[in-house]
């Protein structure tokens, strides 16, 4: 006698018995409204550990994620935004919600940066995803000014381990806050641009943008 339910994960209304068909009609509108209210309420109750939004940019869709302390993650589409969110849930907190307003300032400053109206970011940053030597490397990257570049070896020389050139490469590749913490300004000693977490095309575009070449 038991009806077979596929799974309510599809959100399909087909699984509801005919007697209830009228009940599901306004569900999606009601849900959109409720979800919106829920996100504000969660933030108000201090339960929004990680807020995120996705913005468009000349280097593709960017995921921006922030904690109450500040921007914690900027991710390129090629990193897999879903995978990045799963990872944030595991490493920061599973209380992850789409909540654009916390990222308004970051989105605005990135817009200004891509419009060449901004050279430095003025944002609260949360570096909890970079520890130890990686954190130390990231701290030195803003020393490379807008429109300039430095080699991995030069950056290593600024740190407590001046010979750790490869580790500088790793720190850049794993930079949780690319663009804002300018790992794209670190290039190879031979002058070639080298790899980038956002892809080599993105790195070329950013360096061209900053040099004013367009």
């Amino acid at each position: 006698m038991e009806q077979h339910f596929v799974d309510s994960e599809t959100g399909s209304t087909a699984l509801v018995p005919a007697d209830f068909a009228s009940l599901t009609r306004d569900e999606s509108t009601a849900l959109d409204r409720l979800t919106e209210l829920f996100r504000s309420a969660a933030a108000g109750a201090g339960l929004l550990d990680v807020a995120y939004r996705i913005v468009d940019s000349p280097v593709g869709a960017l995921l921006l994620a922030g904690t109450e302390r500040g921007l914690v993650r900027v991710a390129f589409a090629r990193e897999g935004h879903d995978a990045v969110l799963e990872s944030l849930a595991t490493t920061v907190s599973p209380r992850v919600l789409l909540a654009p307003s916390r990222l308004d300032a970051a989105a605005r400053e990135l817009d200004e940066y891509f419009a060449r109206q901004r050279q430095d970011f003025d944002l609260a940053l949360d570096f909890q995803l970079a520890a130890g030597f990686r954190r130390e490397v990231l701290a030195h990257l803003p020393d490379i000014g807008y429109g300039h570049t430095a080699s991995y070896a030069t950056v290593a020389a600024l740190t407590s381990s001046p010979r750790a050139v490869r580790a500088v490469g790793t720190a850049c590749a794993r930079n949780p806050l690319p663009l804002v913490v300018p790992c794209h300004r670190v290039i190879r000693s031979d002058g070639s641009q080298g790899a980038y977490v956002g892809g080599v095309e993105a790195k070329a575009l950013l360096l061209a943008l900053e040099s004013g070449a367009q």
Binding site: S87, L88, V96, L98, A173, R174, A195
Partner: peptide
């Protein structure tokens, strides 16, 4: 050069693959 290595996430060790057995998905989902 190690900078060429694509990492799945800022956390590094978690990688970009499926979440570990007892990990929770983002509440949004």
């Amino acid at each position: 050069m190690s900078a060429a290595v694509k990492t799945g996430s800022g956390a590094g060790s978690a990688g970009s693959g499926a979440p570990a057995g007892d990990s929770l998905p983002p509440f949004e989902s």
